[in-house]
Simulated scan of single mutants.
Amino acid sequence: MRISTLTGTTLASAAAAVVGSVVTKPAVESWYPTLRKPRFVPPNWVFPVAWTALYADLAVTSAATIDGLRDVGDDAARRAYIGALGANLALNAGWTWVYFGQHRLGGASILAAVLTASSADLALRSARVDRRAGVALASYPAWCAFATALSTSTWWLNRDG
C-alpha cells in the first residue's frame, strides 16, 4: 500500500468525521437526550468508538483497493472507486448535519438508507479487487444498516401526530 494513497484516504475520512462532529457534540449534549429512542439504541459511548474504527477501516481498505486497481492498470475503475468514496463520505457527513444539525429525522433516515447502499457498493468494489478487503469493509454497510434502523425508529417514535 502506498503511503500517499493511505494519507489521502485517511485525510478524506478524517474530514468527514470532523465535519460530522462539529454538529454532533452540541446536539448530543442538548437535543438528542430529549428524543424518544428505541430499546435497541446503544449507549452514547459506542458511537464514537464504532465510527472511529469504521473510518479507519474505510481509509485502509480504500487505499488498498485504489492501489490494487492502479497496480492492474484499471484507471477507470480506480477513478470510479475514488468518486464513489467521495460520494460516500459526503453522504456520511451530510447525514450527521441533517440529523443532528437540522433535527430532520425523516430526511436523515432516507440519507442513512442511501449511505447504507453506498457503503455496500464500496465493499463490493473492494471485494472485486481483493476478497479480503471486501470482507474487511463489510462491517461498514452493516453498521450503516443498523444506523438506518435506529434513525428510522427514532423518527417513528418522535413523529408529530
Rank of each mutant, 00 (worst) to 15 (best):
D67N: 01
N88L: 02
L111R: 02
L85H: 11
L157K: 04
P141I: 04
D57H: 06
G73L: 10
V129I: 11
S109G: 10
S109P: 04
R128H: 08
D121P: 05
D57S: 13
A138C: 11
T152L: 10
V98P: 05
S109R: 04
V72K: 09
G101A: 09
R128C: 13
A138P: 10
L85G: 12
T116S: 09
D75F: 06
Y55I: 08
G68R: 01
V72Y: 07
N88A: 02
S62L: 10
S151V: 14
R104M: 08
A90E: 07
V60M: 06
A77T: 09
A108L: 11
L137S: 13
V72F: 08
A53H: 05
S151R: 05
A138T: 04
L157E: 07
V135M: 15
W97H: 13
S119A: 13
Q102Y: 10
L69S: 07
T52S: 15
A93D: 01
L69N: 10
A108F: 03
S153E: 05
H103I: 04
S119D: 01
D130P: 12
I82P: 13
W95C: 08
P42H: 04
L115A: 00
C144D: 00
I66E: 05
V46Y: 02
V98F: 04
A53C: 10
I66M: 12
F100T: 11
W143I: 00
R78N: 10
A113N: 05
P42C: 06
R131Y: 07
S109Q: 06
R131L: 15
W51E: 02
A136G: 10
S62T: 12
R132N: 09
A108V: 01
D121R: 14
A138I: 11
G106M: 07
T61E: 12
G94W: 03
L89T: 01
